[in-house]
Write a protein that binds this DNA or RNA. Sequence first.
DNA 1: CAGGATCCAGTAGGATACTG
DNA 2: CAGTATCCTACTGGATCCTG
Lengths: 150, 150
Amino acid sequence: MATSTASERRAVAKLQYDAFLAVCPSRQLLERISDKWVALVLAALGGDGPRPGEASHGEPRPMRFSELSRLISGVSQKMLTQTLRALERDGIVSRTVTPTVPVTVTYELTDLGRSLQGLMRGIKDWAEGHMEEVLTHRDGYDQRQYDAVG
Amino acid sequence: MATSTASERRAVAKLQYDAFLAVCPSRQLLERISDKWVALVLAALGGDGPRPGEASHGEPRPMRFSELSRLISGVSQKMLTQTLRALERDGIVSRTVTPTVPVTVTYELTDLGRSLQGLMRGIKDWAEGHMEEVLTHRDGYDQRQYDAVG
DNA sequence: CAGGATCCAGTAGGATACTG
DNA sequence: CAGTATCCTACTGGATCCTG
């Protein structure tokens, strides 16, 4: 059962893996993709992200390391590398090296990555779209805390 | 512009917040919800999660602290408390105290939480559903690494 | 039962310097 | 340009003990 035809049996696999269980492999996968940098990298490679002098959403396209680094402000080179390596290992992004001088490296989503990208963009959009609402709730919560203490 | 009618203007707010920017508040919100425990808590409160002697998906319903703790195996009491407090502060879950002895505390999703729950369940389901595929990719990647080194 | 408070180890992750 | 390697700190998060 470990060496079954994996790709087509996902509907079945869904019944076998359970992320609620600490020992289930899917728990680790969930941890890996539940990462702010993963969300932002996938959103970037998925075509979300303003390009100079243009509206917010572009087309999905291969992106270079430095390009990603610039778009995702605040990410360290270490974390970006680490994130991209992990995603490549899991088959979510592909890495292409073109032997120019200096070398050109591009990243893009795989089919598997594309199947996840929509979800991740949804998360990012949700955060951006409900920010005001969340801020309002926080104010209320903090005020209640303040009142309770005196 | 800070005190506008927040709830209905989300479509507008979406144009104002950008999680790609390190200084944008939505970046912090994205970090907060990009958390394995958040994903699992929302999945649990959203009705995903096997109940004894039953199929995998139940109905959304209020859940007690100990119940969540048992369902989400491996979570420490500290992290569960911390996660629930943060979600409560952000208006994603609500906390209800019933003054029995000992006290009964239940958690459930708010409307805001319900709007996020679908996305989070999607992430969890993706992880469970694509586990095999990811494992296959990892094997290939690791093998290639091994070959490259010798 | 549902946490709050403490203590402490592990590691995530930033800064810096160097390489093909 | 696109990383790798190293060092080091800060925070995450688990374990434990205690309370209303």
